[in-house]
Amino acid sequence: MQHSCTPTQKTGLKNPANRTTHPVQCVKLERVMILFDRVTKTYPNQSTAISGMNLHIQPKEFVTIVGSSGAGKSTLIKLMTREEVHTSGKIIVGGLDYDTIGPKDVPQVRRRIGVVFQDFKLLPNRNVAENVAFAMEVSGTRNKEIKRAVPKMLQLVGLANKANNMPQELSGGERQRVAIARALIRQPKILIADEPTGNLDPKNAWEIIELLLKINRFGTTVLLTTHNKEIVNALKRRVITINRGRIIKDEEQGRYAL
């Protein structure tokens, strides 16, 4: 993990000298998918959700984030998707310095990151294929391209035969697959899965986790948050435990410990 600490212009870090005292190892930026440098997020009501967090996640990693409710997981994700703006520190995701982006760039940021949620967030009046196509429609992809890409993606998540079903005709696990397909259709570098198994029974939950692992094998960085102890322990992947807005544990083959 030890890399030479050559500050590149891309980092935009104002004072490279400080890096020596930095708790997070210094990494070449092109090797970092997600970088948080002393990031703090204080909400207008003065509550601090993230405080001085340092985090770096490399390309193609599969990282699980655990923490009790209110530990700051949701804020962490919202900072990455730019739903919230950090109060101080530096956030760089996929080489993009979040200090340099304006409100107009936010849609572009979100197109580079796929996100799935516990409650799926599917459009109830559109069928499976249309829900997946929706993510391409908003970014101006041609219909021809959409028609070509959607069936392939449904094939990947194992829903090729459900393209014309409405979301309410699907099981929870299937709905989450649709959400994953929609998140992946634009080939993002990062997939954030925010409690994707929260509403699923163990069998369906495992199928979703296996799908995430498969996606990760294809080269997508996956960030998973979960409360499911069995899943975390069985994954044997990097686990970051956060509490009160700070990282309290970061292990390469972590276990669920709360």
Binding site: T81, K104, P107, Q108, V109, R110, R111, V115, K121, L122, L123, F134, A135, V138, S139, R182, R186
Partner: peptide
Amino acid sequence: RDEIEIMKLVGATKWF
């Protein structure tokens, strides 16, 4: 509002 949230989520621009 759900639909609007999803549009934001998948990166729709404000004017879209």
